[in-house]
Computed example of a mutant assay.
Amino acid sequence: MYLYNIIVGIVFSSQIGVGVFGNSCFLCCFGFTLFSSHRSRTMEPILVQLMLTNIIVLFTQGCPLALFHLQKGYFLGNAGCKMVFYLHRVGRGHCICTTCLLSVFQAITISPSHSSLAKFKVRLQKVIRPSCLLCWIFNMIIEMSVPIYMTETKSVNSSHGGGMHLLYCYNERALKELTIFPSLRDILFVGCMIFTSGYMVFSLYRHHQRVHHIHSTCLTPRTFPEVKATQTILLLVSIFVIAYCISCGFTLYKVYVIHSGTWVVDVTTFIALCFPTISPFLLIHRVTQTSKSCCACW
């Protein structure tokens, strides 16, 4: 068991280090691009929000488990447990909302001029920043009840039922109304991601059909970047939805199976942290302007 704790602690520490490094690199590349070109593209504020949220999730969800396994003890205390888990829940909710915003706004961006979504294009730049701010406020409010029902694990009897052990914290209301509103939020935004992703796939297919007879060198300069950006966002949303669904499956297993073992929490957390770890490297690799700016800076 000691060897297991050491291995799991090292795995989480490595995942956090790689994820924080990737998100920090993207933010540095964005800052260099902003100061060198003196302009920002439509989706860049959302991407910055996503990277900041990824760092919050990595620290608040991964670090407690890594330290728990490496130190083999309860180190947060009751107040620390409440604060860290609240920040984790807000960050997780904001990550869902931000990814959904990214998908929705990109679907509006690539919508044909004759579609019903085209009329929103002119307002897109004005509503991005207010939308990000509203997402923060919305998630901070909807998760306000989380600290009330979180407590330090060592102060809870191991036979206590009705909740869920998270190794370093204990959720007393895991099976009750604490999860209703966050679950409705998750279902709504994940469903919206799936719908807009389907719309973007359909739009890309129609675009491919229209330009199939034209040689790639004859395409207009703005067509290829939009298609590439859409493919990147589709890949991001796909990774997020897959990781979210798998993580939810393990979470439900942990909630409803009493003697599920600590490995379920470890696997659930590892899968949940895959998106904030992978997404910055995907964006740095796929977004042409950002990659070129990074190379020029280095």
Rank of each mutant, 00 (worst) to 15 (best):
L184H: 14
L184I: 15
R185V: 13
D186E: 15
I187R: 00
L188K: 07
F189E: 04
F189R: 02
F189Y: 04
F189M: 12
V190K: 06
V190H: 01
V190G: 07
G191L: 03
C192W: 01
M193F: 09
M193G: 04
I194E: 06
T196S: 14
T196I: 12
T196R: 04
T196G: 07
S197W: 01
G198D: 04
Y199I: 07
Y199C: 01
M200Y: 02
M200E: 06
V201E: 04
V201N: 02
V201F: 10
F202C: 14
F202I: 15
S203F: 14
L204P: 01
L204V: 01
Y205V: 15
H207Q: 10
H207F: 06
H207D: 11
H208L: 12
H208E: 12
H208A: 15
H208K: 15
Q209L: 08
R210M: 12
R210I: 15
R210Q: 14
R210S: 14
R210V: 14
R210Y: 07
V211W: 09
V211Q: 04
V211E: 09
H212T: 06
H212N: 12
H212C: 09
H213W: 13
H213V: 14
H213E: 12
H213I: 10
H213P: 06
H213F: 11
I214K: 09
I214N: 13
I214Q: 08
I214H: 08
H215N: 06
H215M: 08
S216G: 05
S216D: 02
S216P: 08
S216H: 11
S216C: 02
T217V: 10
C218Q: 11
L219D: 13
T220N: 10
T220Q: 14
T220D: 10
T220W: 09
T220G: 08
P221R: 03
P221H: 06
R222M: 13
R222L: 15
T223C: 07
E226V: 08
V227F: 02
V227D: 08
K228I: 14
K228Y: 09
A229V: 06
T230G: 05
Q231R: 15
Q231S: 11
T232H: 07
T232A: 09
T232N: 04
I233N: 00
I233L: 10
L234Y: 05
L234H: 03
L234Q: 03
L235Q: 07
L235S: 12
L236M: 09
L236G: 04
S238Y: 10
S238R: 05
I239N: 07
F240L: 08
V241D: 05
I242L: 02
I242K: 01
I242G: 00
